[in-house]
Nucleic acid binder design. Structure first.
Lengths: 156, 156
DNA sequence: ATCTTTGCAAACTTTTTGCACCAAT
DNA sequence: ATTGGTGCAAAAAGTTTGCAAAGAT
């Protein structure tokens, strides 16, 4: 026991197993690296490198932005982290262990997860139509969320 | 009668009507603006601002990159142009009049168009599953093209 | 003559890289 | 004692902005 660590909201097993995985793969466990990992698992949403570097609004110790990027790349190589782009603005990083994909609203930015069976259906439709095997991880689906559809009077 | 213009490959009507539209909307027809418009319509694929500024590999007169960006923004405001992102790298611009969307291969970069009925099907699936009204214009679908699937031995 | 638009240069944003020092193993 | 990782600073890469001069109307 004795886990007097930073964030109380974190699903401990995920963070812990990520930390373990990193050590097992022979990477050194430094302060910066731990902050990056914990910051990634703390919120329930993808975060920017800048947010991680700044300590996620006081929840963690800040560390250098370059180190954050280098760590994110290392973690991505290990398959623990993935990133996505929403067009303009910085890239968004999330634990790869979260097996779902996202739809993001182009207007308000709110994103939600897409159930796996829906993703499978989408892949089937595209595969049949054009033969591509589509993924929704690096460039997530985007569109208008129900709320913004109302605000913009989008019909049906 | 007397159309000694730059590109012979262009579907003339589109370029011409775009040029007309711009004039009709009260924008001045400058050399730089014409180059941007013609360069957008010339190739059968989305192009980068840099490509346009450089004269599209000798096909058009080069012009300043800042002017290209300003013109692209103006044309986008007019609804004549749209742009999309493929993650890393520069944005890609295309005439908005082309009513189709794209799937891009994450590995080789090759992109092809997605038939409208397939897009409608995709929208239906997502709308039913999560209520979002998805678009594929700003962030196109990405995945692996059939060729790259083979090369990577992706099953089925 | 007016007032957009241009080209150039500089700023800005996001990400990468070089390097000397530090610290995990 | 190694050598991987860190912080800092500078460089890239893509895009935006300020401004005086050029040019379309």
């Amino acid at each position: 026991m004795s886990v007097p660590r930073s964030s109380p909201v974190v699903p401990a097993s995920d963070v812990q197993s990520a930390l373990q995985e990193v050590r097992d793969r022979g990477l050194r466990m430094t302060a910066a690296r731990r902050q990056v990992i914990e910051a990634l698992y703390a919120p329930d949403r993808p975060v920017t490198a800048e947010e991680i570097a700044s300590g996620l609004y006081g929840r963690f110790m800040p560390c250098d932005l370059a180190s954050v990027y280098r760590n994110l790349e290392a973690l991505e190589d290990l398959g623990l982290v993935r990133h996505m782009h929403l067009g303009h603005g910085p890239g968004l990083y999330a634990p790869a262990s979260l097996s779902h994909e996202y739809v993001a609203c182009e207007r308000c930015g709110r994103s939600r997860t897409v159930p796996a069976d829906c993703l499978a259906l989408l892949r089937g439709v595209v595969a049949k139509a054009v033969g591509y095997r589509v993924s929704f991880a690096h460039l997530p689906l985007t569109g208008l969320c129900p709320t913004c559809q109302e605000k913009l009077h989008v019909r049906s």
